[in-house]
Write a protein that binds this DNA or RNA. Structure first.
Lengths: 230, 230
DNA sequence: AAGTGGTCTAGACCACCCT
DNA sequence: GGGTGGTCTAGACCACTTT
């Protein structure tokens, strides 16, 4: 545990007991209190500012933010997302195969056409009810013997534990669509119901394209909350 | 112009000429080159890392990112959003009235029930084609004589110019829905088509709730692109 | 062992806001 | 003028990776 992380967590706890627009102690005071340099205090404050918990005004002070900002839309797995919503995530594996990449998938994953990819279909449940149907495409070269693994849990956790691959960035496209009968049946809603369609391309910390997935979320059960700033 | 901003812009220009995964000079070299301290170099690098242009590996070096990341989803007005997509924005004002706030609107705007609000309905066009139908609720107290203004242009620009109010933060909820006949007709699509429903609460830099709006976007023409990071 | 980025220090001056 | 956060310095040691 580094000092600035320690200071940050102490401050986070203190902020939780304060009111919006309350004034925090001066940076020089905090440095004295925690027996660290002012730069270290500033490192901790900067991190809290980026989280939206506090804001600072030059020549004035540092304050608790007006509203508690929900974390917005970070890069989270379905598993993490559901846990954050206090729902119990589960997964039903529907299909898991290896096949040559169709042209459009190869292009998205930046592979040569026909290179082998894994294709997975999974139904994601929350507290036992269908929430989302997803199709995933993964380069086989990055995940040897993937199909021998347990695929009805968090894939991101499997990637990290088994393949030392962390999805660091994701490019997402969000839109709406009408559900085909098959997908509607899986999700337990009438055909042609509206759903959220999320296409995601996951990239690891070395810049390799790790996954391409499309998820269909039940619109009656799911939405994105995000807070954006100027 | 501060030093770290100068260093950052110089580096940004240099990065533009480099290939993904190219190695940047060591921090200590950069400090020497620019005749600044290593901390200042690190401040510039940190900013570029947050923009996704570079990444660093401890004990190894700092590298150009594999992909140029689009800026994701900021707080933009419809007008700005369309211009960014190279589409010409336009607006057709459908309704503009003043009325007592219904209970749910009052609650969302944190007003007393029955306090007066403006209610606007507008059809937003891109290159002349319907893109989005929006309903807006605004506290009258913040925008005296709003209905006398020109309401078929960017409201955010009007707020800034006429009322010195800048929407600094917005809480958004994004989901999908089926269009009612009236809304489908306005947007020029069949009834019950899928659409994106975006609810937005805008907050100014003093923490006042400035607007509550619901927008229905044609799903065939519109989606959100966003890049998220761990 | 050598070299990298990550953390931390103690001190200084600047830009801005208040009284 | 006095106090705040913002910037910057020169130097040190640590954690990690590669040789």
């Amino acid at each position: 545990m580094t000092k600035h992380l320690y200071v940050r967590e102490q401050l986070r706890a203190q902020i939780a007991t304060m009111q919006p627009n309350d004034l925090l102690p001066k940076e020089r005071e905090l440095a004295e209190t925690f027996q660290v340099s002012r730069n270290t205090v500033r490192q901790a404050l900067q991190s809290l500012i980026e989280d939206g918990l506090i804001y600072s005004v030059r020549g004035h002070g540092t304050f608790v933010s007006d509203r508690r900002i929900s974390k917005g839309l970070g890069l989270t797995s379905f598993t993490e997302d559901m846990r954050a919503r206090n729902l119990e995530p589960a997964t039903r594996l529907i299909t898991a195969t290896q096949r040559p990449a169709p042209d459009d998938i190869a292009r998205t994953l930046e592979l040569q056409p026909g290179e082998p990819v894994y294709y997975l279909e999974r139904l994601r449940l929350a507290d036992g009810f269908p929430m989302c149907f997803e199709r995933l495409h993964l380069p086989t070269s990055l995940f040897p013997k993937l199909l021998d693994q347990k695929l009805d849990a968090s894939l991101y956790e499997l990637f990290a534990a088994r393949y030392r691959t962390v999805v660091a960035t994701a490019e997402q496209h969000i839109t709406a669509t009408e559900l085909q009968k098959r997908h509607a049946d899986l999700l337990g809603v009438p055909a042609k119901s509206a759903a959220m369609l999320v296409s995601r391309r996951g990239i690891d910390n070395r810049g390799r394209i790790v996954e391409y997935g499309q998820s269909l979320y039940r619109a009656d059960r799911y939405g994105f909350d995000l807070t954006v700033r100027r």
